[in-house]
Simulated scan of single mutants.
Amino acid sequence: MQRNNKLRMLIYCAMFAAITGILAQVEIPLPLVPISGQTLAVGLTATIIGSRYGAIAMIVYACLGAVGVPVFAEAKAGLHILVGPTGGYIFSFIISAFITGLILEKTKFTILNAMIANTIGMIITLTLGTIQLKYVADLSWTTAIGAGVTPFIVVGLIKAYLASVIGIKVRERLLKADLLTDVSRDSEKTIAA
């Protein structure tokens, strides 16, 4: 039974890595960093499958892009994207998914908690992404923040809200259908043991 649950969760990881690649192609081009659906996918992933598996899904996503599968924004791929100006955003997805899921696992999977967790995840993504953007593109802090943070705040809050509402509803339905392992109960068992 536990082996089946782990296999199912790993299938979800692969699925959410693919969803992230698909949503990455939904974008609004901007001069340095495009607005894309990637962060919506990160929030959905963490809200639905939690910290550990959410982070694994984002590692799979980054690895797929690194080896040449065109899953990054604008159907780009390759290691040069990860070490380039926008690579910090992609690396931050791993940390963001983990922290977002962890907050929900330590509190409760509700829309309000998910909104708080996804907003924190957005802040992590924007912060880490902007740091790499600043240093790799050799920008001033003002220019880096203007290009890497400011255009994404309102859109990021909208995506955090959507990830929270959709993610919690999907999670509830998957749990009800017994198609998802309740990671919050698993972490409680681990703590009690």
Rank of each mutant, 00 (worst) to 15 (best):
G50C: 11
P85R: 13
A192E: 13
V42M: 11
L175H: 10
L64W: 08
I59R: 04
M15F: 15
V69W: 00
M58G: 05
A14D: 05
E74Y: 07
T127C: 13
T45F: 14
T100S: 12
N118E: 03
F91H: 02
L32R: 06
P29W: 04
L44H: 08
F72S: 04
S51T: 05
L112T: 12
V165T: 12
V149C: 09
A137H: 02
V33P: 06
L79S: 04
I153C: 08
R171T: 08
R185W: 00
R171H: 10
A62L: 15
A137Q: 03
Y61S: 09
I120R: 00
L139W: 03
L44E: 07
I166Y: 09
W141D: 02
L157D: 11
I28W: 13
I116E: 03
F16I: 07
E172T: 12
I81H: 02
R3H: 06
L32M: 15
F109N: 08
T181L: 15
D182N: 15
F98L: 11
M1A: 12
I49T: 07
G78I: 01
I22L: 15
G54K: 07
Y161Q: 01
F93R: 00
I116D: 03
L102D: 02
D186V: 13
Q38I: 04
A192H: 13
G43K: 11
L180F: 13
S36R: 04
G65T: 14
I59E: 04
F72Q: 02
S164L: 04
I123E: 02
A144T: 08
M15Q: 00
V170E: 06
D186C: 04
G78Y: 05
A97Q: 06
L162W: 02
I168E: 04
E172Q: 15
N5L: 13
A75Q: 12
L104N: 11
M122K: 01
V149H: 10
G37T: 11
I11S: 14
L44R: 05
S96W: 07
Y61T: 08
M9I: 03
V154N: 01
L82I: 10
Y12H: 11
V149A: 06
V26H: 01
K189M: 10
K108R: 14
L32G: 00
A117C: 08
I19P: 00
I28N: 09
P29T: 10
A97P: 02
G88R: 10
L179H: 10
I94Y: 09
I158L: 14
A77Q: 01
I145E: 03
G43I: 05
L112V: 14
I22V: 15
V149L: 06
L157I: 12
V155I: 12
A55S: 13
A77N: 03
W141K: 02
L23H: 05
A57Y: 09
F98W: 12
A46D: 04
A55V: 09
L64D: 00
K134V: 01
K76R: 14
A46P: 01
G78D: 09
A73E: 08
L157Y: 07
S36T: 15
V183E: 15
E172H: 14
I124T: 04
D178E: 15
P34F: 09
A17G: 09
M122T: 14
I103K: 06
M15Y: 09
A144P: 00
A55W: 09
R3L: 14
V136K: 03
S92L: 08
V69D: 01
V26A: 15
D138Q: 13
T143N: 09
